[in-house]
Amino acid sequence: MTRFVLHRIGFYVLIAVLLAFFTVPLLWLASAPFTSDPTYQVRLPDFTSENFRAILDNPYALGSLWNSVVLAAGTAVLVVVFAALAAYALSRVRLPGRDALLYTLLLLSSIITGTAAMVPLFQLAVELHLIDSQLGLILIMTGGLLPAAIFMMKDFMDSTPKSYEESARVFGASPLQIVRHVVVPLVRPGLATIAVWAVANVWGNFLMPYLLLSDVEKQPAAVIMYTLYTEGGQANIKLLATFGLLYSVPVVLMYLFVSKKYGFRFHGGIKR
């Protein structure tokens, strides 16, 4: 009996420690921006809006958030469209060596956006006059995310029965009509997943925009955050905390929105 109680106590203590480990930074993020003199400790805020005013005075802060939105949205749209089309084709057309192709792509993708390819990528961007261009960055990040996206998307495509499409085909629908009327609505949760995943990836990416965009006006929030120093060269905790909060809110909102709108549902219609 006492053994059991001790067991339970130990278990809950472990859970509490784990929870604290994740909660404390979040609490800090929620309270520090509203505190006049934030430190690295979590303290009750005095609800000042001073820090927000300060961040708005920073000439690049708001613009960088907008840049992040542009980069993330652009990349997500391209990734979703290309991944959906490629995955559909790969899922429905029999190709010799299809699986080998997919795994090779997946392997290459970790190299493309990985550090190893930075120099060649940089040179390629320069040659193509895509350096210091948001479009260039979007294309490169799309390229990096696509293989994994295709891989995930193919799984969704594989799990939707073919007879829906065949049925539409017999009624005379063209391949594009089939994709628009039947396939896309059926794999919509999958598309939403890929989009969210792509946005989150771009949103948090520091290295690529840091290397490929030198114009501060074009840099996204993840890079601007790196520039928030005091005159003394110390990290500016006030601005960092406030900007950090502004930086995370859009992503959280997106998760909530997408999970409410496209949460994993399947309406049925195939009798199994």
């Binding site: 029965p161 065949e166 049925s167 539409a168 017999v170 009624f171 629908a173 039947v182 219609g269 195939i270």
Partner: peptide, 16 residues
Amino acid sequence: GARDIAMVFQDYALFP
């Protein structure tokens, strides 16, 4: 689509 026929599939394949 060009054959002017209609088919009912075993699983009905109604669009969900």
